[in-house]
Amino acid sequence: MALTETQIERYSRHIILKEVGGKGQQKLLESKVLIIGAGGLGAPIALYLAAAGIGTIGIADADDVELSNLQRQVIHFTPDIGKPKVLSAKEKIQAINPDVQVRTYHEWINAANIMEIIRDYDFVVDGTDNFAAKFLINDACVLAGKPYSHGGILQFVGQTITVLPGESACYRCIFPTPPPRDAIPTCSQAGVIGVLPGVIGSIQATEAIKFLLGKGELLAGRLLMYDALKMKFRDVEIKRNSHCPLCGENPTITEAEDDLSLLTVCDLEQS
């Protein structure tokens, strides 16, 4: 499908980039990205991917918008309080860019539904707020060979890494098992500066776009760490871990499973 006149104008600042061009923009319009979590990270990810003209955006979250979300979840507005986050996000995405098809999943992802949900997408972005989901997304994406971007934030610090299954280190290469429940504080317990997910989420959206375009160097095999108080970025090279329980030499995880000891961490923090 050739770009229309309107699209040529809408995406003109992309199209003049030699790394994008008309062909790259068309690629983006034909791409499908799944965002899991429509919260702090999911908000800027969804906004920028929508504006960029990602043709199909899936968004999964079971929560409703709450007043305490609005300090950072910039896709949700005050009148959206009480509305499912996926619906609120869908409305904004469509208002930004009618080129985008939005698929909503108003449910928590779990071992029973994740493989089916991610199947149709080119790239997955983790914007979740709990370890059960983060490990599940890593496991499902690595097992399905689905490239994805991991992101995590707390207080004034954040980190992100892009995982190319079978090529670069996965989340379990760094952290073989989740921490015990409640060992690591959550944002609702410890706080988060509202702009932090904007920084990390925008980097995750950049990675999705670069992956789809096939341009530049991805944040694969490198964990990028950001400290907003010190205003410093650092990246650490992460090699694949031969002892990784998922992508190592003798894997013990061969299918997506829920870690029951970790479930509902984020449900609890909401209540």
Binding site: G37, G39, G40, L41, D129, K134, G158, I184, V192
Partner: peptide, 11 residues
């Protein structure tokens, strides 16, 4: 030596 920390938020 690098210390790598869990960071679970996304909220």
């Amino acid at each position: 030596i690098e210390f790598l920390y869990f960071m679970g938020g996304g909220c």
